[in-house]
């Protein structure tokens, strides 16, 4: 990468962040009930790091468990649909219905069903992670080079051969794109579900802070969740770069 490109890649976001920081400071001084002073955020985080680590841990357990369950279920279903296309017309409308049902509406219903445990958080995270991966996996598994498929068929390759040696590797870019979308969705799902019926996690932290108008706590929780989501996306991108090397 040339020096100019590096300067652009680092400089442009830095300039934007600086601009946002100035805008934040101006808004905070003009109207303190909307935004806290920018300097109060690191002070808040430094004052109670254990509190944020504990709540972030709770949210991460929900989000990552939900991500694993949702992505796993989506992959299994996509594999089943690719091998039995008749399932497609049965499965897709139900999946679509799940996707359009607002998470905020599901969360209280799950609290009623599972009580004040972490299970509703995990279920909501799984539901939100499910659909992006399903759609990407279906597209990836079906988007196979026709010539390669004919070569496999001309050798009477088994379905397992076709899947493991052709469909799966050729769909990896789709699967990683789906994983990125599902990871963000799982974080959002976990946090939103913590808004109701949870006393722990970043979602509950945000709700509590809102109730007591503790703006520094609210914004630290929001920024921590955003940064952790960003880190998850970076991690998936890194794994993709290691795995997809062609």
């Amino acid at each position: 990468m040339s020096a100019r490109r590096v300067a652009l890649a680092v400089g442009a976001p830095a300039a934007l962040l600086l601009l946002l920081g100035l805008l934040w400071s101006w808004t905070a001084s003009a109207n303190p009930s909307v935004l806290p002073p920018l300097a109060s955020l690191p002070a808040e985080l430094a004052a109670r790091p254990d509190f944020y680590v504990r709540n972030l841990g709770h949210t991460l357990v929900s989000a990552l468990s939900g991500f694993g369950i949702g992505v796993g279920a989506a992959l299994l279903l996509a594999i089943a649909v690719v091998h039995a296309p008749v399932l497609r017309s049965a499965v897709l409308p139900v999946a679509l219905l799940l996707n359009v049902t607002p998470v905020v509406a599901i969360a209280p219903a799950l609290v009623v069903a599972f009580g004040f445990t972490q299970v509703p958080n995990i279920v909501v995270a799984a539901l939100t992670a499910f659909f992006p991966m399903l759609i990407n996996a279906l597209a990836g598994f079906r988007n196979v080079d026709r010539g390669s498929l004919e070569v496999f068929r001309s050798m009477a390759a088994s379905r397992t051969d076709v899947f493991l040696r052709l469909r799966l590797p050729s769909s990896l870019r789709y699967l990683f794109a789906g994983a990125r979308l599902s990871a963000s969705a799982a974080m959002v799902g976990a946090i939103v579900s913590e808004f109701t019926g949870s006393t722990r996690g970043l979602g509950a932290t945000i709700v509590t802070a809102t109730t007591y108008l503790n703006l520094p706590q609210m914004w630290v929780a929001i920024l921590v969740s955003a940064l952790v989501s960003l880190a998850l996306l970076g991690l998936i991108g890194l794994v993709e770069r290691i795995v997809v090397r062609w």
């Binding site: 010539g147 390669s148 004919e150 050729s170």
Partner: peptide, 10 residues
């Protein structure tokens, strides 16, 4: 042998 080489890129 199909029209494209149909090699597995990975």
């Amino acid at each position: 042998v199909p029209q494209n080489a149909a090699l597995l890129p990975w």
